[in-house]
Write a protein that binds this DNA or RNA. Structure first.
Lengths: 334, 334
DNA sequence: CTGTTAGCGCATTCAC
DNA sequence: GTGAATGCGCTAACAG
């Protein structure tokens, strides 16, 4: 039924070792024999069994990817960066959604490890002690992708979320705004939620603006929560002249709430966000945003992982990619 | 170094067969021995090797997924549907982007098969004879996801793209429009491009409207190609009063071109599309579109695949999911 | 209920 | 350059 390396060996009149050699491109094979073997492979339609190979060689040429949610454009972009580089180095990826839920993350990490992946790329919520524990028992390299651990013990590739938020808010301040509200993500999420909130506060502080709790609403990164939060701000007696949203989607939601109330962006209220997804230039006014290089984060983290898997020594196992502010139409001077 | 089933057996004072039994939840084990084994597993930190298991059992509990581009929101949504159901049935997925390029598709199909996936989900461009050839040599079930083959020999899950386009255009016609242009995808793409174009033509024909080549532009599914195409239509002496775009993104591009020219949607020109991605409700005016149930397409195809893998017999291996038109704000009567 | 014995398909020494 | 032998870690009969 299934044709094995033995069948090919018999067909070609050589030993299985030789077949293995030609399949693995081992130079120690006479060109003529190589040819015979290839012909036998062709004739029989032989397809090497990667599972058997994996058991024998202890390498699977597949890496595990733990991702919060592949249907989220931001993460999908990272995933594409990962897959492209993986493909380039002849790795395949097993993708698991974990929705930033700890138990699910731990669970998929373990099944990925059971599947003997050669390495692991982790995108998730907080990296807890339990995560660290699971990572420790893995005998393969791991790199955090679009996250970091507090202790800085695990290799990672990310941007500086706090600084990105800081820069966004400072851009608003530079335009003369002082009453700046924020539509934040959950503060439980250390990377996106909490870090960006911290950046917001620090920017205000640096500018000598006192923090006003009333100017902060917690959203869920999605469009609707942006519209909701903005409606709240619009109802304030002393409403903000600018808003900083933790994600593009929430920013777009905010813009629409503003427009629906008869106000204009950026004339009446400026809006800025962090992400710079494709959508940023697909709305009117086009969104000014701090760009996160999502594709690159994926690509660089996968590249780092390949080095780690090859046991090459890497100097900086903590890479922080640059972010930049992309000025479009949603911010103006006060 | 790595702890195997033998180590656990020795530690628990039983045979490896017994350990295998408890790991695999075989009921034929005395509760007491089961307990002993679990303790030994715990003590040693044993983690079953899925590769070895795969070789012995000839099952890997992983399925291959060939996808055009995971960074495309539409496909990412399908992927999420696939993964959720896969997860539910304890399968993992190996994801490969193939960009609808035939050679790449064939290549990844083969490596997926080498990896001994238990089944294959294929999303791609045209299903050619070469694809069929590759599928035939696979000894595992395959289902086409968001595509179909002409001959109808491979199980598939999709919507009726031709009908979806037909319905969209008819909705325009029902509103009194007769000068209707189309921003199409490439006609080489049988599912999205060609089928939707056919639906457009049939709707015109049915209404007795003569087809005008000048009212059709070919885009690449992306925003920019939508703006470009619309600029062309706007420059026409006798410009259309309605436009049908093959994707949301192109529709949104068209809307912005219209608005930039000083015209209004839908007062001056109506716009409709097929997709109904999240973005459809994130633009102003909100986009009227024929909804494709992308998540469901993924979920249903994965569910179908599990049945096929379990050799359950399925009645309809060709499932066509319903589409529906979601009326929002971008279409009005002429 | 439990242990023994064969492979699964291949990479990899070690000889020749 | 090539072949024979061994084992990767586990499942799956088959006995008992």
């Amino acid at each position: 039924m299934t044709v094995t390396i033995y069948d090919v060996a018999r067909e070609a009149g050589v030993s299985m070792a030789t077949v293995s050699r030609v399949v693995n491109n081992n130079p120690n094979v006479k060109p003529q024999t190589r040819k015979k073997v290839f012909e036998a492979i062709e004739r029989l339609g032989y397809r090497p069994n990667a599972v058997a190979r994996g058991l024998a060689s202890k390498k699977t040429t597949t890496v595990g990817v733990v991702i919060p949610d592949i249907s989220n454009a931001i993460f999908a972009e990272v995933a594409r960066g990962i897959e492209d580089i993986a493909n380039m180095y002849h790795y395949n990826i097993i993708l698991c959604n974990a929705d930033k839920r700890k138990e699910k993350e731990i669970r998929v990490i373990n099944t990925l490890l059971e599947k003997q992946v050669d390495g692991l790329l982790f995108m998730g919520g907080a990296v807890t002690d339990e995560h660290l524990q699971a990572f420790k028992t893995a005998n393969v390299p791991i790199v955090l992708c679009a996250t970091t651990d507090e202790n800085g013990v695990i290799p990672s590739v990310d941007i500086d979320h706090e600084a990105a938020a800081f820069d966004a808010v400072q851009a608003l301040i530079n335009e003369g705004h002082t009453r700046i509200s924020m539509i934040s993500g959950t503060l439980q999420d250390p990377a996106i939620g909490f870090a960006r909130f911290q950046g917001y506060k620090r920017a205000l502080e640096t500018a000598g603006i006192t923090y006003d709790e009333d100017l902060v609403r917690i959203g869920n990164y999605r469009y609707e929560s942006g519209t909701e939060a903005m409606k709240y701000f619009l109802g304030l007696a002393n409403r903000p002249t600018a808003v900083f949203a933790a994600t593009d989607e929430m920013a777009i939601g905010a813009i629409h709430s503003i427009q629906d109330s008869g106000l204009k962006v950026p004339q009446d209220i400026s809006v800025i966000s962090v992400d710079n997804s494709r959508m940023a230039s697909m709305v009117r006014p086009q969104l000014t945003a701090v760009a996160q290089p999502m594709y690159d984060i994926g690509a660089v983290s996968m590249r780092l992982l390949t080095k780690l898997m090859k046991k090459e020594n890497v100097d900086h196992a903590k890479v922080v990619l640059p972010h930049e502010i992309v000025k479009r139409q949603s911010v103006s001077a006060r």
